[in-house]
Design a protein around this nucleic acid. Structure first.
Length: 563
RNA sequence: GCGCCUGUAGCUCAGUUGGAUAGAGCAACGGCCUUCUAAGCCGUGUGCCAGGGGUUCGAAUCCCUUCAGGCGCGCCA
């Protein structure tokens, strides 16, 4: 049982309210000088018909001071509690040292499956910074939920279906060069695609050619499938190179084409349930009761849409994985699409539609406007990563030229910086991409947290193991106590990140922990002649190191022990 | 026109279910390395929390409204 719960029970006894209510009322004061936990007595004023300060004073007398509380103070309408710091340090460190890098893990997800649909590469399209949010958020949620005991299935819902692939093949047949494609892969495909659009402006008939080739893909034509399969393979090879760098993994690459043969069954089901109605030549599901525009399921020409395949995909996922949650990490531009998708599923009688969730995030744009693949106005993710690594390497050469494994460390720090900056704000906020910002390694950044980790690692490495016990009284100072409180609440942070699908909760907490530790580290020497005191301070450093490493790991960031 | 989202310091952002004087980082300036990694620490200044109304003992937070910006709104994904 944690301290807050224990405190709530004591308060409940004294105030004659339920422990749940007391826990609900307890809060953390804005300044640690005011206390470690506070009970605002304003709400009690109504029922008790007394002024809040009087209630606080009265409660202070009624609540027997538990041994883990060192002091109870009345301040205005607040009743403030101070923890016994020595005891707090002892308890916290004991728990943390036993847990090590598992601090914050849990089994609440046992026997539950979470599907996470993220990154979703488009075939023949470059991997640019616009894909970073989905990839980084999805991957972090993957790691976070697995840490909480969930069985997680990462799905890369490939964008591998649509007339654009017919156009691409048509372009390849006209102007393609195998050597160039093998060498430049996606860049070469993009060139073909752009040229196709340029030429089609002049010659309309090219579009028919493109449609014809797409028809061949649909019909499983041998040549069309061979070329398309080749393009797909090359695109994935390129994407996987980036995934490798980012430490991102998937359990399934079932994309749009995978669901193609599962669509007829969905259409049958929609008809059977009388949901599919003809409208302006197309077939739609009306969503008037839900206050949403109709969802188009079949086009006038009888072909399917994105939404149709997503319906098939959702049903397939439920059938195959029986998920507890089904998350779509997709930009907020698709808000309406997902509302409609879930509404249709619900109308079909699938209660599990409520377990589907759109984890939306903001747009990424460039300083001079929106990105455009077709106009080549993009920043490739690989370029960002390699520039970050390069910069890191030059910093290492300047600050720590003797470092072993420089290249590996530079990769860990540089790439970590990019991921960290992506995950350091609320999902929903738009991002204007800036090299200056991403390549800044000072302050609230990935390298800062990693640096703190190496400080811990290095001080621990200097300490000789011994069998003397800890003297935790040296951790009663404000700086150490602040570190301990942050460490102690790390598990709640992980849980909140999972519940709200917000990896940045962890990012922020790591920054706070690093700041608190750096402050402590500056003020106090860790290793000195007093063995028992040193043991306690080393234990603190070890707990910080493990927690930072765990947290960074959950974000997909490495924690080198030297940098 | 309708719907959703965003608006907090010069810039980028925090701010738990409403709670005590609204906080960080960056940028600027000034300090701190013969001692555990200075990618660090300390200090200095900055706010009509977009505007207005309301609910409440108490509002950056909840409700209404106006403004600004973004996204979306039947055959793209």
């Amino acid at each position: 049982m944690d301290l807050k719960t224990a405190l709530a029970e004591e308060i409940a006894k004294g105030a004659g309210i339920s422990a749940e209510d007391a826990a609900e009322m307890l809060e953390t004061p804005p300044d640690p000088k005011m206390g470690d936990a506070a009970l605002p007595c304003f709400k009690l004023a109504k029922t008790l018909r007394k002024a809040p300060p009087a209630i606080a004073a009265e409660l202070a007398g009624k609540i027997g001071k538990p041994e883990f509380i060192s002091e109870i103070e009345v301040q205005g309408g607040y009743l403030n509690f101070f923890y016994d710091r020595k005891r707090y340090a002892q308890d916290t460190l004991t728990q943390l040292l036993a847990a090590g890098e598992n601090w914050g893990s849990s089994d609440i997800g046992a026997n539950k499956t979470i599907i996470i649909d993220y990154s979703s590469v488009n075939i023949a399209k470059p991997f640019h910074i616009g894909h970073l949010s989905s990839t980084a958020i999805g991957s972090a949620l993957y790691k976070i939920n697995r840490f909480l005991g969930y069985h997680v299935v990462g799905v890369n819902h490939l964008g591998d279906w649509g007339t654009q692939f017919g156009k691409l093949i048509a372009a390849y047949k006209m102007w393609g060069n195998d050597d160039e494609i093998n060498r430049d892969s996606v860049a070469a495909m993009l060139k073909l695609y752009v040229r196709f659009h340029e030429e089609a402006e002049k010659d309309e008939s090219l579009n028919d050619l493109g449609r014809a080739w797409f028809k061949k893909i649909e019909d499983g034509d041998k040549e069309a499938m061979r070329i398309f399969g080749w393009f797909k393979e090359l695109t994935l090879r390129e994407a996987k190179r980036v995934y490798e760098m980012l430490d991102v993994r998937f359990d399934s690459y079932a994309g749009e084409s995978f669901y193609n043969d599962k669509i007829p069954a969905v259409l049958d089901e929609l008809r059977e349930k009388h949901l599919l109605v003809e409208s302006e030549g197309a077939y739609v599901v009306m969503l008037e009761e839900e206050n949403l525009p109709p969802a188009i399921i079949l086009k006038k020409d009888g072909t399917t849409l994105y939404a149709t395949r997503d319906l098939a995909a959702a049903e397939y996922r439920k059938k195959t994985y029986d998920f507890y949650k089904n998350l779509y990490v997709v930009a907020y531009q698709q808000n309406l699409h997902f509302k409609q998708l879930f509404a249709v599923l619900k109308k079909m009688g699938h209660d599990w539609a409520d377990d589907c969730e759109h984890v939306a995030f903001g747009m990424v744009s460039l300083e001079d406007g929106t990105m455009s693949t077709r106009h080549g106005k993009i920043v490739l993710l690989e370029d960002v990563l390699s520039r970050a690594v390069e910069k890191t390497l030059s910093i290492i050469n300047e600050k720590n030229p003797q470092l072993e494994n420089k290249e590996q460390v530079a990769a860990d720090i540089g790439i970590g910086a990019v991921i960290f900056s992506t995950l350091s704000q609320n999902r929903i906020k738009d991002i204007t991409f800036s090299f200056d910002r991403v390549l800044n390694f000072d302050g609230e950044t990935g390298p800062y947290v990693q640096y703190t980790h190496t400080r811990c690692a290095s001080v621990i490495a200097r300490h000789e193991e011994n069998s003397e016990s800890m003297d935790v009284s040296v951790l009663e100072n404000d700086e150490a106590f602040a570190v301990l409180k942050l460490l102690s609440s790390f598990p709640q942070t992980v849980l909140a990140a999972s519940e709200k699908n917000e990896p940045f909760y962890i990012t922020r907490r790591l920054v706070e922990l690093a700041q608190a530790f750096n402050k402590y580290y500056y003020e106090y020497r860790i290793i000195d002649e007093d063995v028992c005191a040193t043991n306690a301070r080393i234990a603190l450093a070890r707990a910080v190191k493990d927690t930072l490493k765990t947290g960074l790991g959950l974000l997909g960031i490495k924690a080198p022990s030297k940098m």
